[in-house]
Write a protein that binds this DNA or RNA. Sequence first.
RNA 1: GGCGGCGUGGCCGAGCGGUUAGGCAGGGGCCUGCAAAGCCCCGUACUCCGGUUCGAAUCCGGACGCCGCCUCCA
Length: 463
Amino acid sequence: MLRLYDTARGEVCDLVTRDPGRLSMYVCGPTVYDLPHLGHGRYTLVWDVARRWFTFRGLDVRFVSNITDIDDNIINRALREGSSEAEVARRFEDEWWRAMSAIGVARPDAVPHATQWVTQMVELIESFLRDDVAYVTGDGVYFDTSRVSDYGLLAGQALDTLRAGARVEASEEKRSPLDFALWKFAKPGEPTWSAPFGDGRPGWHTECVVMSLGLLGDDFDLHCGGLDLKFPHHENERAQAEAAHRNFARHWGHNGWVMVGDEKMSKSLGNFTSLTDLLSHTDARAYRLLVVRSHYRSPIEVTPATIADAERALARLDALARRFALPQLAGDEFVTPGDYDFTGRGADLVERVVACMDEDLNTPLAVAELFDAVSVANSLSDEGNQVEARALALTVAVLFGAMGLSVVATVHDSDDEVRELVRDRDVARSTGQWSEADRLRDELASRGWIVEDSTEGTRVRRS
RNA sequence: GGCGGCGUGGCCGAGCGGUUAGGCAGGGGCCUGCAAAGCCCCGUACUCCGGUUCGAAUCCGGACGCCGCCUCCA
């Protein structure tokens, strides 16, 4: 039984899906007004791993994640750049998918765009006005949070205690500081959609309720996002669903922050590193490994030291892939167990990893099991037991693949000159000319190649 | 002020009542012409103070330190 921490209940619970054998999940996507940073990278990786794992475990997963393509930040950026909102949104959405593809995060099954769902949002807001759950002010339509009795469930706080600490916003017509905008009336020059209660644009919290319910239906299984969305974003989504008398997510998942020193990485603090920057000098797989080596609900620190650590660990996996000529799995195709016949040690490993992963996606424990198996596979091979060794190594690759991490056996393409040096060195070694062989190795090293001798002759790989 | 989380060996990071977590780095050995890769051995850690227990990193109480949310944020 798959188990997962549910924020609403505050504990790890059985993941009982609406339809047996199927799982619907919605992950709150980005607002496209800037480059994706490491925090976006972490949440997309975490939920990509979850999606792949659920698939590996035999669930038919439907994965929906939105793009918020209209909001204040986009408007401000367009204004600053003298371009249009649509242009800004399109440009950064392109950047987004480029980054996602670079870190190996699979495309969602559906990608709703806020601007495509305005009609449904307007209908929802109208119903709120009709039911007196929302009210109109000078600048928009607001949701009356006092109308939802259990408002604060996700935050774990009662409404009145939330209000006590809320900072008061200036020039506010809201009845309560907790009330939130469902709709913002357009100022001159801003993008606008017509609505019976006044032309304008939708508020952020309204998009996700409408799109998640619209695409996955009432009572869908899993709603995920970064911990910062827990409150107020997800709370506000919940409140709307409740006010609309619709069953919302059965289960809530939230991932922890990326930290910079002792601070959370965030746009407002300005302490972020873009994914593009990271990937310019780091194997994207190292970032995925770094992410799965800690639990998804814990904070992680991404520093040159932790990245370097992950890169070296990854090199160990790639060495395994080279030694056993393992296939490169993961990528767009999801790994499922049906294609493999696990026996003996491999079957035991699968069983152990499944136990770790099924219990609230304990990837760090699973990774520990896998690294143990790496040593065992190498030992078996050292002892000459090639059949068992390779079977176990393959199982390791399959299970990492199930988390979306491919091990890579690729011997990088070398040019003619390099191949000649390698050939010369093999000749020198076979005739015992050690100093010549060493000189050729140094020569290769100076060109950025690491030399590895094997029974099949000299092998080189990029340093 | 309210709510929540965290403090583990040089670093990263699991565990959450009794058994070696794991990785990286470091030391020693094996293998190798020498290396690389690989294997073996080595650190005996849990912020502090009390308590419960045959036994606590793990439970309870307290202290200290740190972080987050309550406001846009993945």
